[in-house]
């Protein structure tokens, strides 16, 4: 019974948290701009609508293009099994944090190859930016992980992101947190790295890679992207927020996710997207922060 309840709450979070979190981000941005904004559940409605539609495929594409959305969502779901969403993760072992990072690489690989399969210059541009920026985001992510793993004594997400009472070890945690937040924004194509709302193909990264996808494929991609945001934000939340007694672990995680969504919405409302040539500088800064954090931990 306990197991069933655990799996049920896990599934609920995997299915529902992503659209709701995106909804809260949009609502925050609307509130700051003085608009009413779409309802919080709008992304969920969009996904359901897309699932019911047919699809148009380019004559240039092959099975690679159809494989992309399916595998990238499968990879993110597999990564979700490593994250302690409902108190504990489904699977946990020493070294799962590396697998977590590389499952995202799997998703990126198939998304990029699917984009290149269309033969479109625009999608090639987006793919090129995606691989360039993520190859700088990856060292920041893994170095930040390494610092946390050293402190936890094990390279597993559940030990590294244990809610051990907030910011007690000060500077190194703040540095790791800062670099992980930059990686979160970059990996999930949020401002200041990428703008999920822009409609200019030339300036986008993630959105331009999925220009040709439609119907269930696009629904898979949108859900996968949202789930990726939930997973990374969820880890950060566990690092900062101690478990609140009246809410339980899943409840406090959801509360934290809502707070993270508001924070991301505020970041997006308060600044513009960086020029593309500036993005690597931001990511290198994140690498430096993660390295300093690691040095402070090792000291």
């Amino acid at each position: 019974m306990e197991t069933l309840k655990f799996i049920a709450s896990y599934l609920t979070i995997v299915l529902l948290a992503p659209p709701v979190m995106l909804g809260i981000i949009n609502k925050t941005k609307a509130a700051v701009a003085g608009r009413k904004g779409p309802p919080v559940l709008q992304p969920l409605h969009d996904t359901i609508k897309l699932l019911g539609k047919g699809a148009v495929y380019s004559e240039t594409t092959t099975w690679m293009f159809r494989l992309g959305p399916v595998v990238s969502l499968a990879a993110v779901i597999a990564a979700a099994s490593l994250v302690p969403l409902a108190g504990a993760p489904l699977v946990s072992f020493n070294g799962d944090a590396i697998l977590f990072a590389y499952l995202f690489a799997l998703g990126r690989f198939v998304t990029v190859t699917a984009a290149l399969d269309t033969g479109s210059s625009f999608e090639g541009m987006g793919a090129s930016r995606e691989v360039a920026f993520s190859s700088l985001a990856e060292p920041a992510l893994i170095l930040a992980f390494a610092g946390l793993a050293y402190r936890a004594g094990e390279f597993s997400l559940v030990r590294m992101f244990a809610p051990h009472g907030g910011l007690n070890s000060a500077a190194s945690t703040i540095l790791a947190l800062g670099s992980l937040f930059v990686v979160l924004l970059a990996e999930n194509s949020r401002i200041p790295v990428d703008d999920p709302n822009t409609h200019l193909e030339l300036t986008m990264i993630h959105e331009v890679m999925v220009l040709d996808h439609g119907g269930p494929d696009l629904a898979f991609i949108l859900h996968g992207a949202g789930l990726k945001l939930v997973l990374m934000a969820g880890l950060l939340v566990r690092l900062i927020l101690p478990e609140l007694p009246m809410l339980g672990s899943a409840g406090s995680l959801l509360l934290g996710l809502a707070a993270a969504a508001v924070l991301i919405g505020l970041v997006e409302s308060s600044m513009a997207r960086l020029r593309l040539v500036r993005v690597p500088q931001l990511l290198v800064a994140a690498i430096c922060a993660a390295t300093f954090g690691l040095i402070l931990t090792l000291r």
């Binding site: 148009v56 499968a74 099994s81 799997l106 625009f122 269930p216 494929d217 898979f220």
Partner: peptide, 30 residues
């Protein structure tokens, strides 16, 4: 977990096929 990715991917591919139900048309790359 690799097998898990393959299993979930297979299930998703099946879901996609059922949802599309053959409503697929061909066009030009955008």
């Amino acid at each position: 977990i690799g097998f898990g990715v393959i299993a979930v991917g297979g299930a998703l591919a099946l879901v996609r096929l059922v949802l599309l139900g053959g409503r697929v048309s061909l066009g030009r790359t955008w």
